[in-house]
Amino acid sequence: MRIARYHTAHGPTRLGRVDNETVTDISEVVGGTSLRALLPLLPSLRDQILAADGVRHPLADVVLEAPIDNPQKFLGIGMNYREHAEEAAQAGIPVPTSQMWFNKQVSCIVGPYDNIVKPSISDQLDYEVELGVVIGRRCRNVPVEDARSVIAGYLVANDVSVRDWLAARSPTFTLGKSFDTHGPIGPWLTTDDEIEDPLALTMRLTVNGEVRQDFPTSDMIYDVYEQIAYLTQVFTLMPGDILATGTPAGIGAPTGRFLKPGDVIRAEIDGLGALENRVIAEG
C-alpha cells in the first residue's frame, strides 16, 4: 500500500491511497490528514484503507507533499556504504569505526517535487540518494531480529548536503545537513509489507539526466535493522521518525561536481518511486 499527502489546486492537504496513476482520498476513513498520526493505527485500519472508495484524482492533477512533514526526528547515518566510505577515505575523510549519526533539522523537509535552494553562502551543494525508513510505533531497545516489526514503511530521500558547512563551519554535520529545503522526501510512504527485502533495492540518482549514483542497498555497512537496534539503545524512536540510511558512492564532493541553479536531480529507488527537484538560487 502506498499512502501520500497531497492537495489539489487551491485545496487543503488530504491523505490518499496511491494506485497506479490515481490517488483515492482516504482522509475521512482515517479521520484526519496527518500520516504521522495515522501510523500507529495503520495495522488496524488497513482493510478500511484498502476498501476506501473516496474521491479519485489522476496523480498528474495533484501536488504531492512530503509524506511526513512533521517527524520528531530526521536522522542520517554517515558513510554507511562500502564504496562511498572508500571514496571518502580517498578524499582524506576518516572512515568511522562505528555507526556515525547526525540530525537533519525537520525544517529542511520539502516535498518530492519542490525546489532545492542553493544557499548564497556556499558553492558546495551536494546530493545523496538514500533509502528512508519510517518508524511505525514507539520503540526502545529493539533487538536486531525484531527491528523490522517497528518499520511502517519506506520512502525516497535526498540527503542534500552543504559540504563546507559539514566540518569546516561546524564541529558536527547538523548545520551542513539542515539548510531549508535540503530534505526532499517522498513521493509517498510505501508500507513495509509491499517490499520483500529492503536490503535488495537499487537506488539511482541523476543530475540533468546523467547517472551519478547507481547502487544496491545491499552495499550498506550497517543494515537498516542494525541501525534501529543501535539507535534504540540510546533513545526512543517514535511513529513518523525518519532514518536516512546512507548514500552510495558517486556524490559530487570527490570530483568537485557540485550542484548549481538550474540543475534537476532525480532520485529513485526500485518499488518506492522517485523525487525530482530543481535547484534554484537563493534570493
Rank of each mutant, 00 (worst) to 15 (best):
M1W: 04
R2I: 10
P12W: 07
R14L: 11
D19S: 13
N20K: 14
V23N: 04
T24Y: 06
I26E: 00
R36F: 09
A37Y: 04
A37Q: 13
L41P: 09
L42I: 09
L42T: 05
P43E: 05
R46L: 15
Q48P: 09
A52Q: 06
G54I: 04
G54R: 03
A60P: 09
A60Q: 14
V63M: 15
Q72K: 13
K73W: 00
F74S: 04
L75N: 04
Y81E: 01
R82T: 14
R82F: 06
E83K: 14
A85T: 05
A85G: 06
E86T: 15
E87M: 08
G92E: 10
P94A: 07
V95M: 07
S98A: 15
Q105H: 13
G111R: 01
V117K: 05
V117H: 02
S120G: 15
I121E: 13
S122E: 08
S122I: 02
L125S: 12
V133F: 02
I135D: 01
I135P: 02
R140M: 15
N141H: 15
V142Y: 06
V144P: 02
E145Y: 12
D146S: 14
D146E: 14
D146I: 12
A147N: 05
A147G: 04
V150A: 06
I151N: 00
A152G: 10
D159K: 00
R163E: 03
L166T: 08
L166M: 13
A167W: 11
A168P: 09
R169L: 12
P171C: 11
K177W: 07
D180R: 11
L189T: 05
T190G: 00
T191E: 08
L199V: 11
N208G: 06
F215I: 14
I221D: 04
V224R: 04
Y225M: 15
E226D: 11
Q227I: 13
V234H: 12
I242M: 05
T245E: 04
G246C: 04
R257D: 14
G262D: 06
G262A: 05
V264W: 11
A267V: 07
E268G: 07
I269R: 02
D270F: 03
D270T: 15
A274T: 10
V279D: 00
G283P: 02
G283R: 03
